[in-house]
Design a protein around this nucleic acid. Structure first.
Length: 853
DNA sequence: GTGACACTGTACC
DNA sequence: ATCTGACACATTCGG
DNA sequence: CCGAATGTGTCAGATGGTACAGTGTCAC
């Protein structure tokens, strides 16, 4: 039987990896698997990844390309809003650019040559590059000052006044740029006009590309690159919103920075804009920095405080519809087109007449409003929330509406997130606190970055970090912000790995260990000095309410002779059957209540599998190597079978042995293995460090089934998937009834190109409604139905009983769906009758359930 | 008012 | 959770 | 020895299923 399947798979396997998969999926003999791993997977690994056109471009080509693109933009703008760009002004601007660029490049070269020698050096180099940009900032800031001075009509910017880096003659020249900026400034301060032309603000960049041309022609390639790069960096110079020292930061300033950030994809540039702005805030009104930071990371407070907006797409659409006087249908249609609710709100707003000019929103206003939305609960709370949003929208000017909505969606989508904010904060703070006129040295800046990252991992609370940094200085953060029981720290994460050989590859010459990867929930258990116990999730949410049983039992886990007062351990909480003494599937664990769990009516029992210790009696131990930590862990705690156990582990470097261990782990209801180095690395909170790897069974083992499913519908893409389908609804074929039963959605595994071609391929087969032989649940109804013609090969980790999908529902009473489905490839060699049948799906499901006994 | 149910949001993976 | 794409950086290759 | 080509690591943002919790709605 399986031989036939194998030959079928061989026939269609596109690449060795999927061949290996298919084969392994059918036969569990570890010898075969090992052989496959050894001969097939390495081949795949060395295959170069699909190059895209852009990737194929040489850097120079890319730079030229982007420069041209930028010029195109500028040209447009000039056409749109003709302004008095006087020639000599543009020239002088040009000068300004050139000088720093030359200086910078030579510096950079020096750095390069220094740092190539060692790994540390090269890291240094990278970071230096970032920091040097900063110095450029300093240069640019005076520019702003002068601009304002020379052009009274533009809002006076105190912003840079307090920064006051040394002003050199070169900078003096650059002031002449001010007139260029004026029109924009005027527009944004007048608000309403500008909102009709949102691109104006965003573009707020520079217009004088022609001035550069003569230079370009003469310069050699290297210079060209520098110019192009500088060119893209320039917009950060301009902030049209005025900031007044001591006064609250206007929200419009934040929005303006968001717009700048959104206009680029370059990380260094983003960091520059952000840190620039943070520094400005520090100089004007340090107390607002925390609010600004929260707006940038789009959060309301530390994760462990558990504040939620309680708003989603649906309610936002309703709100936008209400506040703009359009129907929800209309808004939804627009959403399809643009994939961005913020944009819709903005456009709708700009066409709305404004009776009187509302008071400008401040950063504080917005943050407080968001917080109010989050804390509003109870009857009629939704209406109240909508009311608050409407108020904000009414008060919004310019681009503000767009970002208010995006904030409410919890997706800023501007290419900036936590990590970048942290780096930017570090740079802003270190500049702010630097005593030297020139700003901090490169080394200091790097140090600050490290310190703040480290501190944040141990105390993930921006308010604490910022306050501490302001009080004691960024550079001593490590002394004041260390982990302590009661405050969750960012857990260490593992990197996915595709094969045992890959693991061996990465860990050659290292001593390492393997542990079971339990299929449960990460649980960071804290025991405080006063005996309190807290449990935190992977994302630092407080789960104490969910696990009163754990809290109750922790004291009993301690070795009696150790007198342990406090500790933090890292565990996986797994559902446990006390009757059969075995691990239960993840799906069982999720049925546990999350709040108000009473000890007496717990139905789903839990066994904690501990694998690490992070703090003991108030002393952080994260800097010890794993070997030591494990010893500590086992010395401090004792196993109580079925309640508290140490993760099963094994040290080996033998492929066969590891393979066997992996197989056993899966038989023992685990997801696979975690592989960790024993000696080298300390516990590195939050990093997907190279010293922890996860070896996932679904790439190697039998349950990682690949199915061929029928595409029966699709969903409109949002954000960067606007204009194509963002996901698809898939079904399997029931041979008895000749119906198609919905099975899962799928939205990952596509490259952009594939997504595009799928759109072209499927769009002609769109139907106005579902074919009658399609069985589905209304809650998984797609935006678009298709004539079923196309099959996807889909990989999955697990199968689950589903409340909404229908595959095999006749046999099992519930449908079966897929856990972690991902697209592998298009099966255009097969017809829909060759799709995986409902029976097969059921078979897969039962085999999986059976396997774990 | 109360309870059942639907819908939405958010957490986990 | 999975996955891709863009960047920044690291390393190797060819003249 | 330099620049080009190729490889690697990090980050951000698309998207998956499922369960509970909270709110809204409606019938009684």
């Amino acid at each position: 039987m399986w031989i036939r399947q194998v030959s079928r798979q061989i026939q269609f396997a596109a690449k060795p990896s999927s061949l290996a998969n298919s084969l392994v999926a059918i036969n569990h003999s570890s010898a075969i698997k090992t052989a496959l791993i050894n001969c097939c997977l390495p081949i795949t690994l060395s295959t170069p990844s699909r190059p895209t056109l852009y990737n194929q471009m040489a850097p120079v080509q890319r730079d030229i390309f982007s420069m041209l693109a930028m010029r195109g933009k500028k040209k447009k703008k000039e056409e749109e809003e003709p302004k008095k760009v006087v020639e000599n002004e543009t020239v002088s601007l040009d000068d300004e650019e050139e000088v720093p660029s030359a200086a910078k490049s030579s510096e950079a070269k020096q750095l390069n040559s220094n740092s190539n020698k060692s790994e540390e050096g090269s890291q240094l180099k990278r970071k230096r590059a970032i920091i040097e940009d900063d110095e450029e900032d300093d240069i640019s800031q005076p520019v702003k000052v002068r601009k304002t001075k020379s052009s009274p009509s533009s809002s006076p910017k105190k912003r840079s006044a307090s920064v006051t880096p040394p002003t050199s003659p070169k900078k003096a020249n650059s002031k002449s740029t001010s007139p260029i900026k004026k029109p924009i400034t005027a527009a944004s301060s007048s608000g309403t006009e500008e909102s009709e032309n949102p691109s104006a603000v965003k573009s707020d960049s520079d217009e004088e590309y022609e001035a550069m041309e003569p230079d370009d022609v003469e310069e050699d390639k290297a210079e060209l690159i520098n110019l192009a790069k500088l060119d893209t960096l320039k917009p950060s110079v301009k902030l049209s919103t005025k900031l007044v020292s001591g006064k609250p930061i206007p929200y419009s300033a934040v929005v303006e920075v968001f717009a700048q950030i959104e206009s680029t994809t370059k990380r260094l540039e983003i960091i520059k804009y952000t840190s620039d702005f943070f520094l400005t805030v520090l100089n004007n009104n340090p107390n607002d920095l925390i609010y600004v930071t929260y707006l940038f990371i789009n959060r309301l407070g530390p994760d462990y405080e558990g504040l939620e907006l309680g708003l989603g797409e649906t309610i936002l659409i309703k709100t936008i519809a209400e506040s703009t006087g359009k129907s929800t249908v209309h808004v939804k249609a627009k959403y399809r087109e643009t994939g961005d609710l913020g944009e819709i709100a903005l456009k709708a707003r700009s066409t709305q007449p404004t009776m009187f000019k509302p008071k400008a929103l401040t950063v504080m206003d917005v943050f407080k409003n968001l917080k109010e939305i989050a804390t509003t609960t109870g009857n009629n709370s939704q209406a109240k929330k909508i009311g608050i949003i409407k108020r904000m929208l009414t008060a919004s000017q310019g681009l503000e509406a767009k970002f208010i909505i995006r904030s409410l969606e919890s997706k800023l989508r501007i290419g900036l997130a936590e990590k970048t904010v942290l780096i930017s904060l570090a740079r802003a703070l270190v500049h702010f606190q630097s005593t030297s006129k020139k700003g901090p040295s490169v080394e200091k800046a790097l140090e600050a970055e490290e310190k703040i990252k480290e501190a944040f991992c141990q105390v993930p609370n921006y308010q604490v970090i910022i306050e501490t940094a302001l009080e004691h200085g960024v550079l001593t953060l490590d002394k004041h912000c260390t982990l302590k029981p009661g405050v969750p720290l960012k857990p260490m994460l593992a990197k996915p790995t595709k094969s045992i050989t890959e693991v061996l590859d990465k860990f050659t010459g290292e001593e390492f260990t393997c542990e079971y990867k339990y299929d449960g929930e990460r649980a960071q258990v804290h025991l405080l000095n006063d005996g309190t116990v807290k449990v935190y999730s992977r994302n630092s949410e407080d789960m104490s309410q969910r696990y009163p049983d754990i809290i109750d039992a922790v004291q009993g886990f301690l070795q009696p002779d150790q007198e342990t007062k406090s500790l933090i351990i890292d565990c996986e909480a797994v559902a446990w059957s006390r009757e059969e003494n075995k691990i239960l599937p993840f799906q069982v664990l999720t049925t546990r209540k999350r709040k108000d769990v009473e000890l007496k009516d717990i139905k789903v029992h839990v066994c904690l599998f501990a694998f690490d210790i992070l703090c003991l009696n108030g002393e952080p131990v994260i800097n010890l190597p794993l070997k030591k930590r494990r010893q500590l862990l086992q010395k401090t705690l004792k196993e109580i079978p079925g309640k508290f156990q140490f993760a099963t582990s094994k040290n080996s470097t033998d492929v066969e042995e590891l393979q066997a261990f992996l197989d056993i782990s899966i038989k023992d209801s685990c997801e696979g293995l975690m592989v960790k180095t024993l000696n080298n690395d300390p516990y590195r909170p939050s990093q997907r460090s190279n010293s922890w790897l996860k070896l996932k069974k679904d790439y190697l083992a039998g349950v990682g089934d690949s199915l061929d499913l029928i595409v029966i519908g699709a969903y409109y893409g949002k954000g960067k998937r606007t204009g194509t389908y963002g996901g698809f609804l898939l079904g399997c074929y029931n041979q008895d009834t000749e119906e198609i039963e919905s099975c899962c959605k799928i939205g990952t595994g596509f490259s952009d190109d594939v997504l595009k071609s799928l759109y072209e391929k499927l769009q002609p087969t769109e139907l106005s409604q579902a074919k009658s032989y399609i069985i589905y649940d209304s809650s998984a109804e797609p935006d678009i139905w298709f004539e079923p013609t196309v099959l996807f090969e889909v990989l999955t980790a697990d199968l689950s009983l589903s409340p909404i999908y229908k595959a095999g529902i006749a046999t099992l009473g519930k449908g079966v769906s897929l856990r972690f489905p991902r697209f592998m490839r298009l099966r255009d060699d097969k017809g829909i009758e060759d799709a995986t049948s409902s029976d097969q799906v059921v078979e897969f499901y039962e085999r999986q359930a059976h396997q774990q006994n």
